[in-house]
């Protein structure tokens, strides 16, 4: 079994489920809409104009998590995984194809989201807004962070073998723990998967992590979840 046919199969599976296409659309819509709302209503003299511009990513991340978790969780319903693994018995290769099939559309939509959000923000703030250099970093960071969150959820869903379980852990975590603890910037909270990657969306930062090291920390979280998912898959009976 080779990788390309497996990837094609997994991309077809993603394209042909309305809920997955819907959550991809939700990544774009929620991020752009909440960012625009926030930009329009915030003080134009705020120091961190870049994060004001990208504030909506907090909501986009929820859509990205739903996308990653749902894409993997579908395999754990009604014996779907048995059929999938009967077609693609090399489990690691199959899971790599699945993760790639989650990452590719998430990255495409994430980058588009980043660019649209940046352009909307520049328009809203005018000369007081972030510089084009900052906006570009924000757009790229936004795309990468959304992709990493989708992969983090995909890995976790493979460990828990359930979309509901994954979402009921990650969404409260994102909404409560991160929002509450996250304000204590410069602390351990900076290393949480959703906070670390978002440093790339700030004009300035004062913790031990910068924009790219922050994204690297998010990538480590995603990688850890995927490795744990692959290990579970390899070890258990289908």
């Amino acid at each position: 079994m080779s990788f390309t046919p497996a990837l094609r199969a997994e991309l077809i599976k993603i394209r042909t489920l309305r809920s997955l296409v819907g959550s991809l659309a939700a990544i774009l819509l929620t991020t752009v809409a909440f960012s625009a709302l926030f930009s329009a209503s915030s003080d134009k003299n705020e120091p961190d104009q870049l994060f004001r511009t990208f504030f909506g990513i907090n909501f986009g991340e929820i859509a990205a998590i739903a996308f990653g978790a749902t894409a993997v969780a579908g395999e754990f319903q009604g014996g779907a995984l048995r059929l999938t693994l009967a077609a693609m018995p090399d489990r690691l290769r199959w899971f790599a194809a699945k993760a790639t099939a989650v990452a590719l559309p998430a990255l495409a939509v994430g980058l588009l989201t980043g660019v649209v959000t940046a352009v909307v923000g520049k328009a809203a703030f005018g000369d007081l807004g972030p510089s084009w250099g900052q906006a570009l970093r924000g757009a790229l960071g936004c795309g990468l962070q959304l992709t990493l969150m989708a992969l983090f959820a995909a890995g976790l869903a493979a460990v828990l073998r359930s979309g509901v379980a994954t979402l009921s852990i990650l969404i409260p975590f994102l909404l409560i723990v991160s929002f509450v603890v996250g304000d204590l910037s410069g602390s351990v909270a900076d290393f949480l998967p959703d906070r670390a990657g978002q440093i790339a969306l700030h004009s300035t930062w004062d913790g031990s992590l910068g924009p790219w090291t922050g994204l690297a920390v998010s990538a480590l979280w995603a990688a850890a979840a995927l490795v744990a998912g692959a290990w579970t898959l390899q070890r258990r009976d289908a």
Partner: peptide, 22 residues
């Protein structure tokens, strides 16, 4: 093995198309 293996929200043709591609 399981009659429930196809995802309920996918069409039969798309289900088989993904399998065929693999």
């Amino acid at each position: 093995l399981d009659a429930g293996a196809a995802h309920g929200s996918r069409t039969a043709r798309d289900h088989l198309r993904a399998l065929a591609a693999s």
